[in-house]
Structure formats: C-alpha cells, structure tokens
Design a protein around this nucleic acid. Structure first.
Length: 105
DNA sequence: ACCATGACAATCG
DNA sequence: ACGATTGCCATGG
C-alpha cells in the first residue's frame, strides 16, 4: 500500500471510532490520526468514499461546527438529518461543538 | 510539467 | 469580528 494511502486508512479508522451522538472536525481527525494539518487530506478521503461505505461520514464537520456542504444540497440535508437523529442539536445551522465535539477517548 | 480546485484550518490585516 | 492569505496534499485539465 502506498504511503499516502497509509494516513487515509488512519482517517477511516478514526472516523469509524467516532461515537454515536458525537461529531469530529477535519483537523481533529487528522490530528488524532497522527497527521496534524492534514485536514484537507481528510476531506479528500471522504470525498472519494463509496456510497455504500459503512463509515459514519455524517459525523464529520468543519471547524466552525457547520456542515461543509452548501445548505439546500441533498447531502447537507441528509447529513443534518442523520445527526439530529442521533441526538445532535443544530443551533442556527451549526452544531455547538462544546457539547458534541469528540476529541478522542 | 504547470496551474487550478477542493466535504479544511490557522493566521493576519 | 470578518474577509483575505497561506499552508497542505492529491487530482485533473
């Protein structure tokens, strides 16, 4: 496996470890995986995910606590719906990170 | 091979 | 507080 695929695998692992009802930021995931400042690589990682993937990609949001898709996009609504379904509350289209942010165990 | 773009983020003016 | 700039890496034209 190529070196670059290495941290992609780490990202998948970390994302898969995000508990239900919690969210994580791109930078946070990158840092937890041991690759700080690789937030963009995390984004690339998710972007290339197969649709049927079991990865809880919906628990990944940006540092502002908001969904990184344009509002009105089907993906945005899907993600938001799933998060709310897990008990995550949205306040003015953003998530209170102080309550839901997951920083590892 | 160079430039532009992207589910981002930290810093600066 | 907020828009602009810079850093980072992979991909596509």
């Amino acid at each position: 496996m190529d070196e670059k695929q290495q941290y992609l695998a780490k990202f998948w692992l970390v994302i898969g470890h995000i508990p239900e009802g919690r969210v994580a930021t791109y930078g946070g995931i990158a840092e937890m995986a041991g690759y700080p400042r690789m937030a963009r690589a995390v984004g690339r990682c998710l972007k290339t995910l197969p649709e049927g993937s079991s990865l809880p990609w919906h628990r990944v949001i940006n540092a502002k606590g908001m969904i990184s898709f344009p509002e009105g996009s089907p993906q945005y609504q899907t993600q938001r719906q799933r998060l709310e379904d897990e008990g995550i509350i949205f306040r003015n289209n953003k998530v209170p990170l102080a309550q839901h942010l997951w920083l590892g165990d």
